[in-house]
Design a protein around this nucleic acid. Sequence first.
RNA 1: GGCGCGUUGGUCAAGGGGUUAAGACGCCUCCCUUUCACGGAGGAAUCACGGGUUCGAAUCCCGUACGUGCUACCA
Length: 507
Amino acid sequence: MSKVRVRFAPSPTGGLHLGGVRTALYNYLFAKKNNGEFVLRIEDTDQTRYVDGAEQYIMDCLKWCGISPDESPQNPGEFGPYRQSGRKSIYREYAEQLVESGHAYYAFDTSEEIENLREKLKAEGKYNVQYDFQNRLEMRNSLSLPKEETEALLKSNFPHVIRIKMPRNEYVRFKDMIRGDIEMQTDGVDDKVLLKADGMPTYHLAVVVDDYLMKITHSFRGEEWMPSAPVHVLLWKYFGWEKEMPHWAHLPLILKPDGNGKLSKRDGERLGFPVFAMEWNDPNKGKVAGFKELGFLPEAFINMLALLGWNDGTEQEIFSLEEMIDKFSIDRVHSHGAKFDFEKAKWFNHEWIKKSSVERLRPEVEKIFEEKNIMIRNENNLDKIIELTKERCTLLTDFWQQASFFFNAPQTIDTSAILPKWNENKNQFFVELVRAYSLLNLWDLTDIEHTFKELAAAARLKPGELMLPLRVMLVGGKFGPGVFDISSLIGKEETIKRIEHTLSLMK
RNA sequence: GGCGCGUUGGUCAAGGGGUUAAGACGCCUCCCUUUCACGGAGGAAUCACGGGUUCGAAUCCCGUACGUGCUACCA
């Protein structure tokens, strides 16, 4: 058997959304699992919707996810170009080959004429409102027109398309790696346009010709393509390439969390979660943040995505990319769609932050603090801070809330949290604490805690009752790691300063 | 309307003739921690419905319902 080659063929007309990344991911996992190649082909067939920079954006997203293609438009292998617009000249030849063999035909109908056909069929109450075997001879095409007229029209460059001549009452069978044997009747499919009037191929022609020319062995795509699969299978047959036809797998859809259809790009906005891998700059709407900007680790993002429609049959849920490559199998991909659950997505990220090393997290955390204009002076301290706070962070951006007080004194002190139980005894205790702390020569964890507890005992106060006020003094509110850990990291001067500051507020 | 695909707690799901029907997210209770988390223990909640086949059906078959997709010179 030939070497496994899979392709991901997004259309560069928008941000790379969850479904797209997952398709790319499954392609990648399958390719790597079988020591094969992962190819990125860009379907920029529709000039009016192509968005500038989208191709690079797709590459960047794949790179962030750690699933960069082996071959891409910028780095085509021997089967390039990998950009459909650059392949325009090839498709016509193949389409005409089909006309010659009698499996396709030229159609000269204007859009108005086609609209009329639909209106007519609708009025007649026909089941299938489509251009097909039932009416193709009534339309203007090379099957209905005399040969000379067709030739004249072609010669005069009359706008035309090439349509496949779908056979009547035939059954097309193929095997889907996820769903098993599929059988479909050709009558339900219309005479699909293969080559558009502008000379560009439709998806139907392109996917077959390109997969053939690029030696693709396995073709994975969204479930929404299943109804047109007969067209593609027939095309492979008509071209005489049956033996090289790739194995098919139709991936389940990712659905809206609240039901009613597949997840769309708009749902993010509506329901308050990202749908893109990375920030997408929509020409009409402006910038839309992605999972990356929201504070997701790519490891968590792809882990979450992979598990949305696949699992290895064990209880394991956290997988590294390497583990996924090892465990992935296409026949364990589900045949039904899954609703996206943002809460679970965040859980994956939380798990990944907890399990990630300080080294892995450090650059991410540094970036967050840089954005907030905080200079990190002591790398050592930063590592300790990350270790101390990471289990409290669901998103990377949470490090700001959980750790900023290590660098800057809190802007506001939640005095209401301590006021109700505040009294002169406690006030006196903290005055004493400041004096005792200032006399400490060494500033280490045990001394800080020991001094605190001794003074508390002397004042006949329970340490517990004093720790909350101290916490609020140090971090501004009821959160964060152990108080003495914080004290030891921010240093003696800063600890005293913050206690005194709050004491002055309490007067 | 036609055609395709699907249906196990609210969500993700394991399980493919005999199970007390796993596990995870979320929710609730308790323990730990006199903060917030982490961790630990427990709880509520499920086989869409109706017929078959079978000693026995979540599991196989048929039907219905529901969901979802396609039905473009979009992908």
